[in-house]
Computed example of a mutant assay.
Amino acid sequence: MSQKIKISPEEHLKHSLYVHDLLSDYELEDVWRFPIILQSEHSLDQFLTLFRSAGDQLSGKGLAGLLFRFRLFLGKLFHWDEQQPVDHLIPGTLRHRYAGREQLTFEELPDPGTGDFIPVYQLENEFLSEIANKTVEAALHISRVPQDGVWVVHMAVYVKPKGGFGRFYMALIKPFRLWVVYPAMMRSAKKKWEHFTKESKRDQS
């Protein structure tokens, strides 16, 4: 099985996923395949738990962590990231769009949490979260998809830049995302998953 982690949008779009229709008006910016393999007994939820832990660690160390902190500084300086409390369904958000399609209430959606990315939905093989600021509306999609008799995990980034400045900003940070942030995220998640599967095998022996 190929271990290439940056994959084409077409390779992602060929899978039957809820997100394709929900985000049909968004641009599919990047798709990555985590360098791990999930067996039939591994759920997406197990991976997501480790992925969040890896993300928390990543934001605090190394060059990727430095970039995260620098972006946070710029957001505060230029007031890019001011967000209203997520205590109800806010029109224009993906949570509002999804709830409308599925006829769900605010209480029936995933807990919004306190992070920058707000969960939209979690299905058996899909998880979607969103973020919006003065530069872009974006969504992070994690999916478990079949490949060669096992499961692999895709990470897709969808964006809707806000005006000319939003597109300039996305172009400006693209090299950092492609060459620093995402590769570091892949390595961190791989390390976490390998440790998890090793411990699981030890517990079963």
Rank of each mutant, 00 (worst) to 15 (best):
P9N: 13
P9G: 08
L17R: 06
H20V: 02
L22M: 14
L23K: 07
S24P: 04
D25T: 13
D25Y: 06
W32N: 02
R33I: 01
I37F: 02
S40E: 15
S40V: 08
S40G: 05
L44Y: 02
D45Q: 14
D45T: 12
D45M: 07
Q46I: 03
Q46G: 03
T49C: 04
A54Q: 08
G55E: 13
K61Q: 15
G62T: 01
L63Q: 07
F73Q: 02
F73P: 01
F73Y: 13
L74E: 12
H79A: 11
W80R: 07
P91I: 09
P91D: 02
R97T: 12
Y98L: 11
A99K: 05
D111N: 14
D111C: 06
P112N: 09
P112S: 06
P112V: 02
N125D: 14
L128E: 07
E130V: 04
A132R: 11
K134D: 09
T135Q: 12
V136R: 00
A139C: 13
I142S: 00
R144H: 03
P146K: 07
Q147M: 09
V153M: 05
M155Q: 12
A156F: 06
A156N: 04
A156V: 08
V159S: 14
K160C: 03
K162F: 05
F165M: 10
G166R: 05
Y169R: 04
M170G: 01
L172R: 02
L178P: 00
W179F: 12
P183E: 06
S188N: 13
A189T: 14
H195G: 09
F196D: 10
